[in-house]
Simulated assay, not measured.
Amino acid sequence: MKKIYIAGPDVFEQNSIEIGKKLVKMCKKYGYEGLYPLDNVVDFSQSKHKTAQDIFDANIAMIQKADIVIANLNPFRGKEPDSGTVFECGFAYGLKKEVYGYLSHTCNYLDSFNEDEKFAKEGYFCDDKKRLIEDFDYPLNLMLSCSTKILEGDFETVLKFLKGKE
C-alpha cells in the first residue's frame, strides 16, 4: 500500500486532530496509507527549540517513508501557501517523490491581485512595493508550479486523480 504524507497548514487549525483523522480515513478509502504530521508523538515538556527540532525530524522521517506528498497549497496568512508546506513539497521533490497540491482556485497568480494591488510598469505588473509579480500563467510561483502537480479542488480531488492514474 502506497503511503501519502499529508502536508498543509491544517495542523494549525483548532480541530487539527479531527481534520487529520478525516484525511487519513479518506486515504484508506482510496487504498493508501495516510501519514499525518500530528500523528507523531513529541515531548512538549522540553525546550521550545528541542520540541521544534523533534517535530521537524519526525516530519522529515514521515516524508522519507512516503511515496507521495499531497499538499494543501491554499493561501495561508497572506497570498502564499504555508512556508513549511512549501518546504515539505520541495524536500519531497528532491527525494524524487510524487508531489501533488490542491487549491480552491487555480487562477493565474497575477489574477489573484486586485486592481488596486498591482500596477503596470514597462510591460510588467508590479505590486504596491514595486516588486515584479510573476506571470507565467501558473497559480503559484514557478518553482512550486513546475515541481508539483497542482489541481483545483480539495484533498479528495487529488486522491481521485491518483486513482484515475492507476
Rank of each mutant, 00 (worst) to 15 (best):
M1G: 06
K3F: 03
Y5I: 07
I6L: 09
P9D: 05
P9Y: 09
P9N: 08
F12C: 00
E13H: 08
Q14R: 13
S16V: 05
E18L: 07
I19E: 00
I19D: 00
I19N: 01
G20E: 05
L23P: 00
V24T: 09
V24R: 11
M26K: 14
C27S: 07
C27D: 00
K28E: 15
Y32C: 12
E33Y: 14
P37R: 07
N40G: 07
V42L: 07
S45T: 15
S45Q: 12
Q46M: 15
S47A: 08
K48R: 12
D54R: 13
D54H: 14
I55L: 07
F56W: 10
A58Q: 14
N59R: 05
N59F: 08
I60Y: 10
A61I: 10
A61R: 14
M62A: 13
I63M: 13
Q64F: 08
Q64N: 14
A66C: 11
I68D: 03
V69L: 10
V69Y: 06
A71R: 02
N74I: 01
P75K: 02
P75V: 03
E80L: 15
P81G: 08
G84S: 01
T85W: 00
V86Y: 02
F87H: 09
E88A: 03
A92Y: 09
L95C: 06
K96H: 10
K96S: 14
K97S: 02
L103R: 09
S104M: 15
S104W: 12
H105N: 15
H105C: 12
N108P: 11
N108T: 08
L110Y: 11
D111K: 15
D111A: 10
S112G: 09
F113N: 02
F113G: 04
E115R: 08
D116F: 13
E117W: 03
K118R: 14
A120H: 11
K121H: 14
K121F: 11
E122G: 12
F125V: 04
F125H: 08
K129L: 14
K129C: 08
K130Q: 09
R131Q: 11
L132P: 02
I133N: 05
D135T: 03
D137A: 14
D137Y: 13
P139V: 01
P139N: 03
L142N: 10
L142C: 09
S145A: 12
S145W: 06
S145C: 07
C146F: 13
T148A: 01
T148L: 02
K149T: 15
K149C: 13
I150F: 02
E152I: 01
E152V: 00
G153V: 03
G153Y: 00
G153L: 01
D154C: 00
T157N: 03
L162Q: 05
G164K: 03
G164F: 03
E166S: 12
